[in-house]
Design a protein around this nucleic acid. Sequence first.
DNA 1: ATCCTAATGCAACTGTTGTCGCATTTATGG
DNA 2: CCATAAATGCGACAACAGTTGCATTAGGAT
Lengths: 212, 212
Amino acid sequence: MEPPAPSTDMPQDPPAPRRRPGGRTARVRALVHGAVREQLVAEGYDGLTVDAVAARSGVHRTTVYRRWRDVGGLLADVLDSAADDGWAPPDTGSLEGDLTALNEEVAAGLTEDPPIAMALIAASFRSPEAAEALRRFWDDRYRRCAPVVERAAARGELPGAATDDRALLVAATAPVYHRLALLRAPADPALPATAARTAALAAGAGAFAVPG
Amino acid sequence: MEPPAPSTDMPQDPPAPRRRPGGRTARVRALVHGAVREQLVAEGYDGLTVDAVAARSGVHRTTVYRRWRDVGGLLADVLDSAADDGWAPPDTGSLEGDLTALNEEVAAGLTEDPPIAMALIAASFRSPEAAEALRRFWDDRYRRCAPVVERAAARGELPGAATDDRALLVAATAPVYHRLALLRAPADPALPATAARTAALAAGAGAFAVPG
DNA sequence: ATCCTAATGCAACTGTTGTCGCATTTATGG
DNA sequence: CCATAAATGCGACAACAGTTGCATTAGGAT
């Protein structure tokens, strides 16, 4: 009952057309990326429509719809292309200091103008692609922050054998996200430090220790 | 330079037409509210459009657009009308227990089906009215939670003269919101308890004490 | 050079969103 | 009961989002 073995290629499925990411395709992508950023700066998130991006980039509407599907896809692609910067967490010499500096970066990102981060969060509620890209972004960021916890452990700031670094980082940053992204309350200059102090204090008391 | 005092009414602006919230208006409002809920149950948030709600309620499209403006306005009105339930925070006998129970309610609300809470959060990024309604809702909830902190203080669980109850409550609940509403990660059954324990621990160490 | 076809351009089309002017209904005050 | 106008119903419309079929351009392999 075996189908005859094909001579050179998979027979049943369309044989995966050879991609062609050369000159023009890359140029179009760069044009669209630039247009997304410019459009965000010029008109804000409400003005970020596929049509506006296409018009600004000079690329045809249909092409943008075909390659990026919707605004969420556009933002996801821009975010992915910007994710491989050499970002590293701050290193101030103490856990609380590191977390405070980290929280200040988070607060700055959430309140910057144009509101790229807020635009992406908003888009993540409408586009699965944007939600996935945002999840990847945060996962990458939290992974890069692991050294903050490792350094604290090496300094003896953390009790127990091991610490759940992700839980600690989420506990430290979550209040900032909650206030700015969900409650939409005005930025509190003291919040980054107090949230960091709270998390560092709890971590010092073993709140994030793992049994292993 | 004082303008002459009007005899009976404000002269310059259109004299605030007498509202007429009587029979039909109230009936229409009830019909639309019911339709919003039914539509959410039937089609989820993606299917919650003004047209769908209008069709389901039997009220004309134009009327819904005029009175509620958009989906955010619909959800905001439904939320406001449901906000005066007699909700009270849990009372388990300890700060950590209260916060754990509270966090479990938050987690249940964010993961319930139909996803009313998530729909409102999503809408709050597109509609100022929904954002304002959500802010009012959370403000009300946090205000009602003040007794949780007061009881803990009365039991001697909190050091210092006074505690910033809002900051404590935000610190306790923020990780749950962050994971479920922003990171969109699967629900972690242990998170409500660990976040509550973390916050209670930090509170016991004086992290939320206010100088006054 | 030349062939193949992926990628793009183009125009027309459908369906949805939101608005506007006007007719009709019906609270509400007298 | 009557008069007024707020609230709603109704249809047409403009603007936008997104799709489809086909023509054209240009990357990449031979």
